[in-house]
């Protein structure tokens, strides 16, 4: 069934959906690009594409994977054209939400986050994307398959391989130089 913007979902509702998925889209774009620089431009371009394609959106399908697929494709193209200028980083402490856990637990988790982030920066964009979608965004394998336009089985194998490479990078970073 074709999505008819005028009958089934008005423009205001479409805008609301885009707005709701914005923060997640920014994280996905940032991870695929490998840097926050330009991630907002990528998501903006993806929103323009989604807006133009809204009359072809099938309302029976989940909105978020449909839009994140556009974001991931746009980010990949942007990275190919511009190269990677920067690295993934954490927000400054002042811009972070307060930790929900005890200070001790948070200190351990913060150290792990930093280590994982450093390791992520050593992976290629495909590995970063599948790990971010599955574990940062907590999306199902089926949703990741939709976004990456591949079978669920491929998501499973890519996830497994990416985790092996992430662990290798984590181990390498722990090794004394």
């Amino acid at each position: 069934m074709r999505y008819d913007a005028d009958i089934e979902l008005g423009d205001a509702a479409f805008e609301a959906r885009l707005g709701a998925v914005g923060p997640r889209a920014l994280r996905v774009a940032t991870v695929v690009l490998g840097t926050a620089t330009g991630a907002d431009d990528v998501v903006q371009v993806a929103m323009e594409r989604a807006w133009r394609a809204r009359d072809r959106y099938d309302d029976d399908r989940p909105f978020e994977p449909w839009f994140l697929r556009i974001v991931a494709n746009t980010a990949r193209n942007d990275r190919r054209q511009r190269g990677r200028l920067g690295a993934l980083a954490e927000r400054s402490a002042a811009r972070r939400p307060p930790p929900a856990s005890t200070p001790e637990d948070d200190a351990v988790l913060a150290a792990d986050r930093r280590a994982v982030l450093t390791a992520l920066n050593r992976l290629d964009a495909d590995d970063r994307a599948v790990l971010a979608l599955r574990f940062v965004e907590q999306l199902s394998e089926a949703e990741v398959a939709t976004i990456l336009d591949c079978p669920v089985g491929t998501v499973k194998s890519r996830t497994a391989r990416a985790k092996v490479r992430l662990r290798t990078a984590l181990t390498a970073s722990e090794r004394p130089s």
Binding site: R27, T30, A89, E90, L109, R113, V116, L117
Partner: peptide
């Protein structure tokens, strides 16, 4: 650790 990055990753 990956899940925790959702709230701390630097994004625009």
């Amino acid at each position: 650790a990956l899940a925790a990055l959702a709230s701390t990753l630097d994004v625009p």
